[in-house]
């Protein structure tokens, strides 16, 4: 089997938002939405810090769909629009999405966005990968692990563009893959492990 995932080095993440903008471009993510965002952990502003000056620390945390092995969103989807595909990715069949937003309530990672109105693109045309499907008002959307790129054998756009090479993409089922080795060597962990969602996005310091 193939189980695609990501491993992200938090030491190398500099909070530059390149992955977030690469995702927006590739997937034609509309204005006001982000499939992939980089937060400064525990801060209400970007580039904030923990502690009292000058005893400070800072961790940038990139968050998107965790492509869980046991996805909370999938379980609550009443139409089967959310599904786990043969490559281990969590995907959405937009045609089957009825806009109930049960998935959004269920996702502990707040990874999904919803098209409350007709999506606004600026510039107002379908930039991005030509194979990425158009979404309309009333459907949920999120990181697809760049399905269109990874189907072609390419790595996701966030991985390709990351200036510090903080992101590694690959098959978690292959113990020899670079990602599997990294996860072992760096003692990588997942977010909100206690939720039992078994994320396929791993982080290490």
């Amino acid at each position: 089997m193939t189980k695609l995932g990501l491993a992200i080095s938090l030491d190398r993440c500099i909070g530059c938002q390149t992955c977030a903008n690469a995702c927006k471009m590739q997937n034609s993510v509309p204005m006001g939405m982000q499939w992939n965002r980089v937060v400064t952990e525990g801060c209400d502003i970007m580039d904030g810090a923990h502690g009292t000056y000058p005893d400070l620390s800072r961790t940038y945390l990139p968050i998107a769909c965790q492509h869980c092995e046991n996805p909370a969103c999938l379980k609550v989807c009443p139409t089967g629009a959310t599904y786990k595909d043969e490559m281990g990715r969590v995907e959405i069949n937009y045609d089957n999405c009825i806009g109930c937003r049960m998935c959004m309530a269920a996702c502990p990672y707040n990874a999904r966005s919803f098209n409350w109105e007709d999506p606004v693109h600026d510039p107002d045309f379908n930039y991005g990968d030509k194979d990425v499907p158009v979404r309309v008002k009333g459907v949920a959307e999120k990181c697809t692990l760049c399905k269109e790129r990874t189907d072609r054998g390419d790595e996701p756009m966030c991985v390709k563009c990351c200036p510090t090479k903080a992101r590694t993409f690959g098959d978690l089922d292959d113990p020899k893959s670079a990602i599997s080795q990294l996860i072992r060597e760096k003692h990588a962990y997942v977010l909100l492990e206690d939720k039992g969602t078994k994320p396929q996005v791993h982080y290490f310091d």
């Binding site: 034609s28 107002d124 991005g128 030509k130 499907p133 158009v134 309309v136």
Partner: peptide
């Protein structure tokens, strides 16, 4: 809702550059 899954290269249903 078949129209929602047309490829990215197709004509958008909305006019270009609304922000002009």
């Amino acid at each position: 809702m078949g129209e929602t899954t047309v490829s990215r290269g197709a004509l958008s249903r909305r006019s270009f550059l609304k922000g002009a």
